[in-house]
Each structure stands twice: as structure tokens, then as C-alpha cells.
Design a protein around this nucleic acid. Structure first.
Lengths: 265, 265
DNA sequence: ATAACTTATTGACCAGGATCAATGTTTGCC
DNA sequence: GGCAAACATTGATCCTGGTCAATAAGTTAT
């Protein structure tokens, strides 16, 4: 019963080269720390996938790993299928975010990744990435930062929050991500259905629905058919322990803080 | 009320150099992929902390980041303190495991880390690490693998399991980690109190206690005053969705699998 | 050894969220 | 445009695991 068909995949994506230089999420993405000249060189190894439609797979569990991906346009979700055949969403990806990091250790992808709607990804061959990173160490710095951010973000999923806190954190987090990308943090369209949000938060979709209506009654957020309007950002932030989930993806300057480390406060 | 004193910290650890060459967890640790000559060079930048006792801090939240640490002997736990002052354990570290990865993005440590008992850590200055990694790229490979493993492991905490599954997974996971290090997977001493396990699993300690007695009745595992005896590894593994949490820390050979990536199965 | 404290065990009760069910609403498709 | 399928909403009921409480048993210091 829990078989889910994410649409038939589109024909094998044709690759197409274009540059990172005028990409709007360049400063969030992997090459964020590169100089213009370095960026030009990096840009050459990046190929775009063809347009993927809702439900199309970017990659599947157990496929051999060779490339990292960045979201160019649209949105993706990652998930695994448990032994009972039902899917467990492990994350959503917004533009500029990197997919495939979990594949490095096993040399194969550990999640399925599908497009949530019409989307394009940038394919970054890992071998090319390493070649360039040897020349431009800030590429390593940035990758480590992204890894490190992902680890901290993973803690969010681990903190035991109430259902309301989970939902608030999700809405607040998405708001922040839109804001980072230059969109209004107060009003946005959810890229995924309610059920996906519930799944990601490990809640029943009924529970999420109930919380939406409750948040609307409290005049904090309204969610009407995927359209989110945040009426009271203040109180929304209060509901979400976002100190646990601060996901400012903007990179820090590439110099190591080596202040002296005193132990035992 | 929730203030917790992890013992008074010991005097500032005196550093002491010894080599990685004869370390028993060398093949699990950061320099796992290095050749003997490379290892000798790596070994020179590693300093040991002095002996830390139960409750001593290795580092604290918000201290500026400069070093990665590896567990040399003993066990450590990482945790944060939430706004109500109670601690939330985010992980346990066994010998050879790397601590501080979450600090890279923020240039400051994001967790508190304390010794669970008499322990020693290896201090690896990140700047030195990067200098050597530029010469020995397999150091980068290994770090990325460890990062990648951590991300996958983090998924475990996110999967919504029943209390029994959580406890079983923990006991099974610790068994595996002991086995990797050459100890019996069937009988071991828990390095942490019951309450810490409950905390880590986001369960009430009463619940963990009840599950221990139930597992004993079923003749699967007995836990008697921290001494764990696994009577039926088979059934324990069945209880733990370890497909979600396979943590084989042994590194893979340092060559990138670049098999052709076919999309849509 | 005794006191004071921390940790473990077991029971009784409670509550948050899951499940089941019924109905309404969109969306995609021919 | 109309049908089917997916998605959303609301209510009723149930159950896992949390909380509170009492006791026991280790652990540490004096």
C-alpha cells in the first residue's frame, strides 16, 4: 500500500553549460568564497541538468556517487524508503543548497532526491571539485562550512520539540531561507504539500493541519492552500527554538579564528 | 533547578606529544588513509591533552574554534544547554572519533564537550591540518568521509522510532563501536549513566529503565548496573532499524568511484 | 560506617499526538 | 468540462511515553 510513484522520470537530462557568474545565489552556494577569476574557472566545470519536473528524480539511493549538485532553480526533497515501503523525508533543498554530501563516505547516494516542482540543478563533478579545491583552498573552506552547517541543522531534527514548535520552526526556517534569497519573509508559497511537511517533521498531516488552523486563530500565521502569510514574526520566532536552528547560510570570511583557547571557564 | 555542574574542571591540560603510529585506533581516526611516512609527519602536529577526569570540559559552547579533537582514550559526550537550563546530549564519542566538526562554520564550538570518565584527547590544530591536507589530499578525503558519516548518523536521531527501537539501536550501535575497536560486541560496560542514554534518545529515564527490564525478560539483553550483555544479537538487530544507522567508520579506499550515472531507474 | 547525594526501578495517572473515519477541496488528466 | 486522484480539514478515540511519586540502591566524603 505505501508505494509511491514520483511520476515517471523525464528523459535523461541533457547537460548544458552556463556560468555561475550571474547566478543569483552565487554567494550562498559552493563557490561563495571565490574571487571573480576563480569563479570563472569554477564555472567551467559546472553543468546544468535539463529541466526536471515535479516528481522527477535527480538521483536515487545506491546510485554510484560522482557528482555534487546545487539547486539552480526550484526545490528538491530528499527521502529514504523504510523497510515498510513508506517514505521518510530527510530534507528540503532551496536554491544554492548542496545535495549529495551524504554520499561521500559510501561513494553512493544515500537518499532519493526528487524535484518538488519544475527545477534545475547544477552538476559539480566531485573529482573536478577536488582538482580545483587544491588550487583554491577556499573551496575546501566553504565545503567544510556547509558540512558543518548541515550537522548543526541536523541537530534541529533531533531536539525533541512539541508539534507546534516543529511546525513553527519549519515556517520560520522557510521564511528565513526565502529572505536570504531576496524574497519577502512575510509571505511565500510553500514549495511542498502539507503532507511533505508533516512527513519531514515526523507528524501526522492531520496534526499539522490542526496546528495551522490554531496558528491562524492566534493571528500568527495563515496558511491558505500553500500560501503562507506571517502576521506576527515576533511570536512565530518565539514559538520556534530557532537558536537551535539558525541557518544563516552566508559564508564567513575565510580566515581561521585562532584566538587562544582557555579551558575550564 | 536544572543547573548541572560537571565537576570542577581540572587545571589547564598540559600538552604532551606522542605519535599516532602505534595508536590502536589509527585506522578509524582522521589520518586513516595516510602512508607511514605521511603519518609520521601528521603525528608531529598532534598534541595530547592531559588526562581529563569525569565531568572535565574539553571545550565549551562559544569558545573560539581552533582545533579539532580526536578521542585517544576514554569517552566524551557533547551537549547543549537549552533556554530552560537543561542539557540536551547531542552525541557520544568513542576512541578515534572526531570532535569539533560542528565548529567550522561558526568558527566557535557549538556544543559543550565533557569527559565521561578518565579520558585523553588528541588536539589537531585546524590550520596545521589544512597545511598538511594541501600536501596529502587523502586527509581531505578522510575528513569529508567523516563529515558524511556524521550526516548519515544524524539521520538516525531524526527518524521517528518507538522508544524500544531507540534503545535497541543505541545498545546495538555501541556494540558495533566496541567491536570495531577490537572489544567484544556481546558484553561491555556502558560508558555513560542511564540518564545520559535517556537524554540522548529524548526519552524519560524511567522509560529507558522499563525497556531494559523488558528486554531482559525477553532474553535479548541484560543491563545490570551499566554492564550490558547481549544474549540475542539477532533479535537486537531486528529491533534496531540499523539500516538507518550503519556506522562503519572504517574508511574506504581513496579513489573516487566515477561510474556512469544513469538517471530514472 | 554514616550521611548526603545521585542514580535506578516500579507504579499510577495523564496528555500529546497518532490513528481511524468522514467529508470537502484542489489538481491533474483525458 | 468532468472525472479521478491527491490533498486538506475536522471530529472521536486510543495509546505510547511523560510526569509525579515513592522506594531502593549505589556512590562519595567525612
Amino acid at each position: 500500500m505505501p508505494r509511491k510513484n514520483h511520476g515517471t522520470a523525464s528523459p535523461s537530462p541533457r547537460l548544458e553549460t552556463r556560468s555561475c557568474e550571474q547566478c543569483t545565489v552565487r554567494d550562498i552556494c559552493l563557490p561563495a568564497l571565490l574571487s571573480p577569476e576563480q569563479l570563472a574557472e569554477f564555472s567551467k566545470v559546472v553543468k546544468r541538468t535539463e529541466v526536471l519536473h515535479k516528481g522527477d528524480y535527480l538521483y536515487r539511493v545506491n546510485e554510484p556517487f560522482s557528482d555534487l549538485f546545487a539547486v539552480f532553480t526550484g526545490f528538491f526533497k530528499a527521502f529514504v524508503v523504510d523497510r515498510h515501503g513508506s517514505e521518510q523525508i530527510t530534507g528540503f533543498y532551496f536554491t544554492g543548497e548542496i545535495m549529495g554530501l551524504h554520499a561521500l563516505a559510501h561513494r553512493s547516494y544515500q537518499y532519493h532526491v526528487v524535484a518538488l516542482n519544475t527545477s534545475v540543478a547544477c552538476r559539480i563533478p566531485y573529482s573536478e571539485y577536488k582538482r580545483l579545491a587544491a588550487k583554491f583552498p577556499s573551496l575546501y573552506t566553504r565545503l567544510h562550512d556547509i558540512f558543518s552547517h548541515e550537522l548543526i541543522r541536523a541537530r534541529f531534527s533531533a531536539a525533541n520539540l512539541t508539534a507546534t514548535q516543529k511546525v513553527a520552526t519549519m515556517l520560520y526556517g522557510i521564511s528565513r531561507r526565502f529572505q536570504e534569497r531576496g524574497y519577502s519573509p512575510f509571505e511565500y508559497l510553500l514549495p511542498m504539500p502539507n503532507t511533505d511537511i508533516a512527513n519531514r517533521l515526523r507528524l501526522a498531516s492531520e496534526t499539522v493541519s490542526r496546528i495551522f488552523t490554531r496558528l491562524a486563530k492566534q493571528k500568527i500565521v495563515t496558511v491558505d492552500d500553500r500560501r503562507v502569510k506571517i502576521l506576527d514574526m515576533e511570536r512565530l520566532a518565539d514559538l520556534s527554538p530557532h537558536n537551535l536552528y539558525l541557518l544563516d547560510h552566508r559564508p564567513m570570511p575565510d580566515n581561521v579564528n585562532n584566538g587562544s583557547m582557555t579551558r575550564h571557564g
